[in-house]
Design a protein around this nucleic acid. Sequence first.
DNA 1: GCCTTTCTGTATCGATCAACACAGAAAGAG
DNA 2: CTCTTTCTGTGTTGATCGATACAGAAAGGC
Lengths: 197, 197
Amino acid sequence: MAITGRPRGFDRGAALEAAMLVFWRKGFLAASMNDLCDAMGIRSPSLYAAFGSKETLYLEAARHYAKTIGPSVWDQLKNGTTGRESVENFLLAAVSVLPECGKMPAGCMVTLAGVSEECTDAILQAMKQVRIDCLELLRTRLNDSLVTGELPPSTNIERLSRFYFGVYQGMAIQARDGAAPEDLKGITETAMDAWPG
Amino acid sequence: MAITGRPRGFDRGAALEAAMLVFWRKGFLAASMNDLCDAMGIRSPSLYAAFGSKETLYLEAARHYAKTIGPSVWDQLKNGTTGRESVENFLLAAVSVLPECGKMPAGCMVTLAGVSEECTDAILQAMKQVRIDCLELLRTRLNDSLVTGELPPSTNIERLSRFYFGVYQGMAIQARDGAAPEDLKGITETAMDAWPG
DNA sequence: GCCTTTCTGTATCGATCAACACAGAAAGAG
DNA sequence: CTCTTTCTGTGTTGATCGATACAGAAAGGC
């Protein structure tokens, strides 16, 4: 069956990107349909036809964030010969990504989303799952360092991964408050002083 | 001039406390007048007569939070013979305050407020000022340890205070996600490993 | 050409938002 | 008692929310 009917008059991917930026900056509830339509350059019937609803648009925007923005930070956990180096690279990537930069809002969309009960249950659950997955990435990397002997056998991996995750989250909030990259870099360097050994 | 007129039929302080809990849990935007009136046990004309508007009610609720909840954590910075002990007491207080407990929502109202642009400018500015004041409390305490010689003269106080503030903020977010006190305690203990020396 | 299909623009839906008008109720002052 | 003052309850305001109905426009298939 060939495609037929009037073709869509806008770039769906570009519209999704624009919606992501609005949700990232304002959150789910504060981002009104007017805000979204204006940023996406379309009218609401086109939005609903292409994305379903405000809620499903948010979920897709969050997935888009996790695919395009997230990896620039979290993939750094695979970049490093040692666990310590990997974690430091991860935090340093956060230093350069979290501050406001051009059209990109400050902070992390996933970290700041759903911390207040302003979203639907589906959104809260989805965002929480992403955070669980992120924590798991840290846990996995640190566990690798445990089995290779880089970390002493007595190391509490759960505790250490939660700590570095918390450092990332704290940096995300301070970035929202306008912290400069050098401020965040200081946090990173101090956090690395807590590395075991 | 003696007081006259029909006396208020509700406890203003108790109503403010109830409003604080609603704002704390849901945030400014998601907390509707209906939510607030129900929790406070009054009708909206009484609310407006006693508190002005939703915005001024929020600001007063935030001040109430800063006077009643905040000190249980931040006053610990004065409790300790050394700076290290004070900071550890501060974080341990956060461990016991941040998780959900009875009617108290999880997390820190000030930390979670105004991270998304869902509030009025006045609220955003007020909350940011509170966070600035908190950071200053840490900076002051650490500087004391610098002048007493507990911390080496080369210590970067700005960096260290931002670090421990970030740890607190990260703990606040993880508490929102349901982290248990023992999870937060692990973060605290790891963070203390970063103490200079 | 015409038919079918899909998208776009206008205009609007009911619901909910924060805020308030107004009248009655509850106190003290005289 | 009456008068004044202040608070409470009912009901409603205009604005905005997310979401659509509907008609016309723009494409392919025939």
